[in-house]
Simulated assay, not measured.
Amino acid sequence: MNISLEALLHAINILGNDYDVTVDGIDSIAVCPPVKLTPAGRKHFEQALTANVNVDYKDDSYCCTYVSDADEKIDKMAWDLLGSLAGYCYEDDYDKWFEGKEAELI
């Protein structure tokens, strides 16, 4: 299925379960709802959120696999967003992108 990363994160919010997400050629990371973004986060990750990726969803393993049609740039953008969301960024950046009064569910 070809959807935006934002649509997938929105679906994870709706389902309300933690999902392991594998970014093609990089690694896997857990995405835990609720997924929220601040306006600064939306701006910073805009390209990653709007890029269409191929998603292979496997209900039995709770795994979503991203395949970016061999575009390593899209893989890297998706990984940067998901890694930051999981806390693999500076605390100030995490707070600026995902926390605070202005943060809204995707």
Rank of each mutant, 00 (worst) to 15 (best):
M1A: 11
M1V: 06
I3Q: 08
S4G: 11
S4F: 00
L5C: 02
A7W: 00
L8I: 04
L9G: 02
L9F: 01
A11V: 02
I12G: 03
N13Y: 06
N13W: 06
I14H: 08
N17K: 09
N17S: 10
D18Q: 12
D18S: 11
Y19N: 05
Y19W: 14
Y19T: 03
D20C: 07
D20F: 02
D20T: 14
V21Y: 01
V21H: 02
T22D: 09
T22E: 15
V23K: 08
D24L: 10
D24N: 09
G25L: 08
G25A: 12
G25D: 07
G25M: 06
I26K: 11
D27V: 07
D27P: 03
S28D: 07
A30N: 09
V31D: 04
C32G: 02
P34K: 14
P34M: 11
V35P: 01
V35D: 04
K36Q: 14
L37V: 03
L37I: 01
T38M: 08
T38G: 13
P39F: 08
A40R: 14
A40P: 02
A40N: 15
G41E: 05
G41Y: 02
R42I: 00
R42S: 02
K43P: 05
H44I: 01
F45I: 06
F45W: 04
E46L: 10
Q47D: 14
A48L: 02
L49Y: 00
T50H: 03
T50K: 05
T50A: 10
T50S: 11
A51T: 08
A51Y: 00
A51G: 07
N52H: 14
N52P: 05
V53F: 04
V53L: 12
V53H: 10
V53Y: 04
V55F: 09
V55G: 03
V55E: 03
Y57P: 00
Y57D: 02
K58G: 08
K58S: 10
D59W: 04
D60W: 09
D60Q: 11
S61C: 11
C63A: 06
C63H: 07
C63G: 02
C63I: 14
C64D: 03
Y66K: 06
Y66C: 10
V67P: 00
S68Q: 12
S68H: 12
D69V: 10
D69F: 11
D69T: 06
D69Y: 14
A70K: 14
A70L: 12
A70E: 13
A70M: 13
D71L: 11
K73S: 15
K73A: 15
K73P: 00
K73C: 09
I74Y: 00
I74H: 07
I74L: 13
I74N: 13
K76G: 08
M77K: 01
M77C: 01
W79D: 10
W79F: 15
W79K: 10
D80V: 04
L81A: 04
L81D: 01
L82P: 00
L82R: 01
G83P: 09
G83V: 08
G83Y: 05
L85N: 09
A86Y: 02
A86K: 04
A86I: 04
G87A: 12
G87P: 13
G87H: 06
Y90F: 08
Y90T: 08
E91Y: 09
D95S: 12
K96W: 03
W97K: 04
W97I: 01
F98E: 09
E99D: 15
G100W: 15
G100M: 15
K101E: 12
K101M: 11
E102V: 05
A103G: 15
A103S: 13
E104N: 14
E104C: 11
I106H: 05
I106T: 06
